[in-house]
Design a protein around this nucleic acid. Structure first.
Length: 455
RNA sequence: GUGGUUGUAGCUCAGUUGGUUAGAGCGCCUGAUUGUGGUUCAGGAGGUCGUCGGUUCGAGACCGAUCUUCCACCCCA
């Protein structure tokens, strides 16, 4: 018989993995609540029209479409069918699609529930999203995003708080040395304006984004390929040498963009955030200005964030976010500014695993196994187990009265730290033999002592 | 979507220019040991070599397709 399997890019999670994932999620969730965010959930699939066209052409390709129910092909006209044009045919046979991220569904939620929401609305959401991508390391077709967004306030204090939120979560996870990279769409616009390539903003930033990956020369090559003028590339030169501390970088940028109103506005926004964070101080993360950061440009209008794992860990970004002045505009609700960040749960897991940062105590294992000696003895054991469980101690009885070696082996393999032996002789004097599996020591004791040791 | 890569026992992997009955380590099961796990010893089970097709007297090995793994690009958490 053929072995069953799961679709590529998806995963099963073992007990250890689920426990560790919940550890991360609980940490993030607690911090979200700690910062005043409230949870919502949205359906795993949306109407196609809600999602299509919101992530660019590339995004549309990566959205999982759901086939209509029923005899969906019968409703397709003969000419459309013979034409074999997938782009035209798709909307006719698929009217629903799996959620691609949490931001667009959130925008839809805000517009749809605008009369029930008190603004500014701070929401968090932790749910799986799906992308029809080709899997790679840390890249899956089903993965979790943990988002916190604020909608209905354009205050820069939100950006400041979100940086703090990142720092709080990574601090709690003991993940030291992450870098929060920050940029501003307005600075990118200012640069494009300055070099006279406003119409090529996206091409220009996508190329710039690859600087640390492919190097200065190749970035220039790509810019030329995209039709950016040589004079513009020359004007760009000082940008490749923006270095130093955050305030030094800002000073360089300021002189570079002195003629661009929008560029200067972006710089002052960044200054505000950097100054506030300098006063408030971060514990686990570093805030860094990175003018080459240009992800998610389809809707970001102000701050752009991306979180890089600590040095030495080969992993794509473990978080991202930014400000979008008009997110709900695509659903017809104007002038609603939003800003938010996202944690990539699956990648954070891989980083914590690589750095061995999961606490030992993160386990859902039983504390004690009661050996099964037979019917009367099992009942005697279950009476004690009932009390232990009521006291919050994870305890279990071996279900079958098999050979002791087998039962002990089970406890050993499951890494259960204690075993209780209660047979005929213990029953007679109402005691239990408690064995510490690690040291091998054992003692005969009463219920009270049992509970005290196992607590 | 483009290019490359991987698949042999539950796991990690050997398997020579194509040649008899496909191996190892670990794990698993049984016993030595009927109230004591890990260690040791003895024995045992387990594979239509990812799948389908082709070349050949003969294929785990060669060819094609397909699925899967990982990687790069694109893009992204």
């Amino acid at each position: 018989m053929k072995k069953p399997s799961i679709p590529k890019g998806t995963r099963d999670f073992s007990p250890v993995e689920v426990t560790r994932r919940s550890y991360i999620m609980d940490t993030i969730k607690a911090s979200f609540a700690n910062f005043g965010f409230q949870p919502i959930e949205t359906p795993s699939f949306e109407n196609s029209e809600t999602l299509m066209g919101k992530y660019g052409e590339e995004g549309d390709r990566l959205i999982f479409k759901i086939l209509n129910s029923g005899d969906f092909l019968r409703k397709v006209g003969d000419d459309l069918y013979t034409e074999k044009d997938s782009a035209k045919l798709t909307p006719k046979i698929s009217e629903k699609a799996l959620r691609y991220d949490l931001t667009v569904p959130f925008a839809r939620y805000v517009v749809q529930h605008q009369n029930e929401i008190t603004f500014p609305f701070k929401r968090y959401q932790m749910q799986p999203v799906w992308r029809a991508d080709r899997p790679q390391k840390g890249r899956f077709r089903e993965f979790y995003q943990c988002d916190a967004d604020v909608v209905g306030s354009s205050s820069l204090w939100q950006e400041v708080e979100l940086v703090q939120l990142y720092d709080t979560v990574f601090g709690k996870l003991k993940l030291e040395g992450v870098t929060i990279k920050m940029n501003n769409r307005k600075i990118l616009s200012g640069i494009a304006e300055m070099i006279g390539a406003e119409d090529k903003l996206i091409d220009f930033t996508v190329a710039l984004d690859k600087l640390d990956k492919i190097g200065e020369e190749k970035v220039k090559v790509e810019m030329r390929e995209k039709g950016i003028a040589e004079t513009a590339i020359t004007k760009l030169q000082p940008l490749f040498s923006v270095t130093g501390t955050a305030s030094e970088k800002l000073a360089t940028l300021k002189s570079l963009l002195s003629t661009s109103e929008i560029g200067l506005q972006g710089i002052s926004e960044m200054e505000f955030i950097v100054d506030a964070i300098e006063t408030l101080e971060l514990s686990a993360a570093t805030l860094e200005i990175d003018v080459t950061l240009a992800r998610g440009l389809n809707y970001y209008t102000g701050a752009i964030f991306e979180v890089a794992a600590p040095d030495g860990v080969a992993m794509g970004s473990i978080g991202g976010g930014g400000r979008y002045d008009d997110l709900t505009g695509i659903f017809g609700m104007k002038d609603m500014s939003g800003v938010g960040i996202s944690f990539g749960l699956d990648r954070i897991y891989l980083v914590l695993e690589e750095l061995n940062l999961f606490p030992e105590t993160v386990t859902a294992n039983s504390k004690v196994l009661f050996i099964n000696f037979g019917e009367k003895e099992a009942l005697y054991a279950l009476q004690a187990i009932k009390l232990l469980r009521a006291a919050g101690i994870n305890a279990e009885l071996y279900p079958d009265a098999t050979k002791m070696g087998k039962q002990m082996g089970y406890a050993d393999k499951r890494d259960i730290p204690y075993v209780v032996l209660a047979g005929e002789s213990e029953m007679v004097d109402g005691t239990y033999t408690l064995k510490n599996m690690k040291s091998g020591e054992q003692e005969q004791c009463g219920l009270e002592r049992l509970q005290k040791v196992l607590k």
